[in-house]
């Protein structure tokens, strides 16, 4: 058992250690200051926050419906909307093209609206990221809503609070930690999105080439730059875990 456990740890930790060994520490700042790196960083921040906004605005109501409204097929719907968590992202990208592509089922009809067609645009990147990231927010928020003691909401209702007021002042603060955890995971997933983005939105520096795509492109021509950008994503991922530590990593410890 301990041997297998050690192997498991090695499998997961060694690649990260390998990455750190390859980091050009002395030139790290220079690598990250190049215009290509800056463009990718800026674009990734903007797009992942955009995707997070989409995930919150659409995902919280969805979580509420899944947690509170009983209707036939609810389990099926829950399974469907969490599918992007396990679906290979490139498949998601192909699906997005089929619907929102220039010749897609909806894309072909919406083509003349401002912001369309979506492929090769920054809003296309946001859509691809939201597609893969939203389930994380929905799952966490729904779990929060289910654990919530509804008597608080009932009490607010008896005191005359209207539904929206009740949701904003009672429900939302109570599910805050779940929402934050879901948002953090969702944002990190959006930041790391590669397959759906490159399939659906392409890869143009400054426009649609986010950090993961820039890393992949750089790996082919400038490995040091790719490793430097990889370290940024690794640091972000670690930070997200540390922020969520109290919630998940702390549980079950001695």
């Amino acid at each position: 058992m301990p041997l297998a456990a050690t192997a498991a740890v090695a499998l997961m930790v060694l690649p990260l250690a390998g990455l750190l060994v390859r980091v050009p520490w002395s030139t790290l700042a220079t690598e990250l200051a190049t215009s290509e790196a800056q463009e990718a960083l800026r674009l990734s921040v903007v797009c992942s926050l955009g995707a997070l906004a989409v995930a919150v605005v659409l995902g919280v109501p969805l979580a509420w419906v899944l947690a509170r409204v009983a209707f036939p097929g609810r389990s099926l719907l829950r399974a469907l909307v969490t599918l992007p968590m396990v679906l290979p992202p490139v498949v998601g990208g192909v699906g997005l093209l089929a619907i929102f592509g220039r010749r897609g089922l909806l894309g072909a009809r919406l083509g003349s609206l401002p912001g369309f067609p979506l492929p090769f645009t920054i809003q296309g990147v946001v859509l691809a990221q939201a597609f893969v990231a939203m389930p994380f927010l929905v799952v966490a928020t729904e779990a929060g809503l289910r654990q919530l003691d509804r008597r608080y909401e009932d009490a607010a209702a008896t005191l005359g609070a209207r539904p929206w007021h009740r949701f904003r002042t009672v429900t939302l603060p109570l599910i805050g930690p779940s929402l934050v955890a879901g948002a953090a995971l969702s944002w990190a997933r959006a930041l790391g999105e590669f397959g759906a983005t490159i399939t659906f939105a392409g890869s143009l520096p400054g426009r649609t080439r986010t950090l993961p795509t820039a890393i992949y492109a750089g790996l082919q021509s400038r490995p040091e730059a790719a490793v430097a950008l990889s370290v940024v994503l690794l640091a972000v991922s670690l930070t997200v875990l540390v922020v969520l530590r109290g919630r998940w990593l702390g549980a079950g410890g001695p």
Binding site: R102, I198, L204
Partner: peptide
């Protein structure tokens, strides 16, 4: 002014064949 710089040539051909470009 390209709308995308793909990472291999087949991806270029695919995006045109699919009608996205």
């Amino acid at each position: 002014r390209p709308v995308s710089l793909e990472l291999d040539v087949k991806a270029v051909a695919r995006k045109v064949a699919a009608g996205e470009a």
